[in-house]
Amino acid sequence: MTSPLMQIEDLSISFKIDDEWCRAVNGISFDIMPNETLCIVGESGCGKSITAMSLMKLLPDSAKLGGSVMFGERNMLSLSERELEDVRGSRIAMIFQEPMTSLNPVLTVGEQIAEPLVLHKGMSWSAARREARNLLDLVRIPDAQKRLGQYPHELSGGMRQRVMIAIGLACRPEILIADEPTTALDVTIQAQVLALLEDIRKEQGLSIVMITHDLGVVANVADRVAVMYAGEMVETGPVEAIFDAPSHPYTQALLRTVPRADAAFELSPISGQVPPIQAMPDGCRFSPRCAEEHRACRVTPKLSPGPHSVACWAREGAA
């Protein structure tokens, strides 16, 4: 049994809204294993992105954090900004949805890839620039030498996302967090970028935490899946278990809303919407939209033990 790379225990994130602390993420626990792709999936506003941000403590000071994010011996949540700088971008890197806004428009591609190498690895700019060329080859950007001198606006969306990935990989991180990395791309380009990430994960042996709302993407890239709803983790398990035998009513309902290109079937929407964080229902947060009922729904259910775990009173083994 390999030990986890990162252990997240009872993580909670609260924000103050109208003088009241609201829990955007409510006590979630999960592990990130070495060399795996973990997908965190859920609708907008369910806390996927801030969970990902908190793994690097990339949240504003106004956020109140609880629980722990253990990376090796260290709890990321109790590190100082200085200590965090050693980890961020070097051992844990992140790529975002919108490559145009996360790249600096006034720096060349080469400078942006070289920067983390100079900052974290203490390389000279000329050595870093040579390494940047290798990284562009790694992310399969043709004509790398010419691209190094170009600015982000000269690249297409797919190329920009490859540059983002090159920056993320520059310091050979152990964990790459990818927040909706292909959402803004066309399907054909999305397929290219997903294949690239998968190849790189195998070659470099890193772990990828991918945040996405697209269950099609999840089915194609994930080893393990964590389904989030309204700031809580409602189901986790190996990708086969989640798709072949979804257990939580939310996971089941979500799968029935996805239009598939290979078959026509009656879409059945989930009524209502994700509640705002100021007005979270008591007990199970999905209960107001849930088709099933159990006498214990007013009490918050916990994830059941085991590799495929679910937080629902109406399922056997739930606690």
């Binding site: 999305q190 397929a191 294949a195 993407v217 089915a219 798709f243 799968l255 598939r260 290979d262």
Partner: peptide, 16 residues
């Protein structure tokens, strides 16, 4: 290239 939410149909999304 369109990903299908079905693990049994998992494939390397044919690359264009």
């Amino acid at each position: 290239a369109a990903p299908i939410p079905d693990v049994s149909k998992r494939q390397s999304l044919a690359l264009l």
